Amino acid sequence: MALENLRDLYQQVILERYKKPRHRGKTNPVHRYQKGHNPSCGDTIELTVKFNEAGDRIEEVKFEGEGCAIAMASADLMAEALQGKSLQEALEMVQRFQNMMQGKDQFPPEQRKLNVMHGVSQFPVRIKCATLTWHTLKAAIEASDPQPVGFVSNENL
């Protein structure tokens, strides 16, 4: 597939996930809740996470918020990819996504949908849009309080 055709496909997937997200809403129950905000462009995200009974795997992630197509598509793709993952696997995926935004890594074939976001790495000003939801997830997983006060900001990252 030609590079231009691949870029068009990536843009189509991002727009589709922005217009018709599959994981918008709130989990029931809410085991973790975290707000995220990107002050440089105004993206906001409210992330809820539902764990399995043992509390060591993610059953479901949902989000609400407002933002650009890249931020909302990233949230929707992330929510889908995390279903059934252990907390450690989820944190490793956060790191891999960060690396991908720096042009250092990509996801393996079984998680290839996330590679749609790789093209964002060519636009440094948009990287914060794509990573906001991932930073928010990391904070939610690592939080000792299931409902922390305040929000995660990726302004200084």
Rank of each mutant, 00 (worst) to 15 (best):
M1F: 06
M1P: 01
L3R: 13
E4A: 13
N5A: 13
D8H: 11
D8G: 00
L9A: 10
L9D: 04
Q11S: 12
Q11Y: 06
Q11G: 03
V13P: 02
L15A: 10
E16W: 05
E16H: 09
E16R: 10
R17M: 01
K19E: 14
K20D: 14
P21N: 05
P21W: 04
G25E: 08
K26D: 11
K26W: 10
K26E: 15
P29A: 13
H31M: 03
R32P: 01
Y33H: 15
K35W: 07
K35L: 14
H37E: 11
S40K: 12
D43A: 12
T44M: 10
E46F: 12
E46T: 10
L47A: 08
L47K: 07
T48E: 10
V49D: 02
K50P: 00
K50I: 03
N52T: 09
E53L: 13
A54R: 13
G55C: 12
D56H: 11
R57E: 11
R57P: 01
R57Q: 14
R57C: 09
I58S: 03
E59T: 06
E59S: 06
E59Q: 14
V61H: 01
K62Q: 15
F63D: 00
E64Q: 15
G67N: 06
G67M: 07
C68K: 10
C68F: 11
C68M: 13
A69I: 08
A69H: 15
A71R: 00
A71Y: 01
A75C: 05
A75P: 05
A75F: 02
A75D: 02
D76P: 04
M78D: 01
A79Q: 01
A81E: 08
A81G: 03
A81H: 02
L82E: 02
Q83S: 13
Q83F: 00
G84D: 05
G84Y: 10
G84E: 08
K85L: 15
K85P: 00
K85N: 07
S86C: 10
L87S: 02
Q88I: 14
Q88C: 01
E89F: 07
E89T: 07
E89K: 12
A90C: 06
L91Q: 09
E92I: 02
E92F: 04
V94L: 00
Q95K: 08
Q95E: 15
R96S: 07
F97M: 15
M100A: 07
M100P: 04
M100E: 02
M101R: 05
D105S: 13
D105C: 01
D105R: 03
Q106P: 00
Q106T: 13
P108N: 12
P108S: 14
P109K: 12
Q111P: 01
Q111H: 12
N115W: 02
V116T: 15
H118Y: 10
H118E: 11
G119T: 07
V120G: 05
S121H: 11
F123G: 06
F123D: 12
F123P: 04
P124L: 09
P124Q: 07
V125A: 15
V125L: 14
I127D: 05
I127A: 07
K128T: 05
K128V: 06
K128G: 03
C129R: 08
L132W: 03
L132A: 03
T136C: 09
T136R: 09
K138N: 02
A140D: 04
E142H: 02
A143E: 04
A143R: 06
D145S: 11
P148R: 06
V149W: 00
V149R: 12
V149P: 00
G150Y: 06
F151A: 14
S153Y: 09
E155K: 15
E155R: 13
N156D: 13
N156K: 15
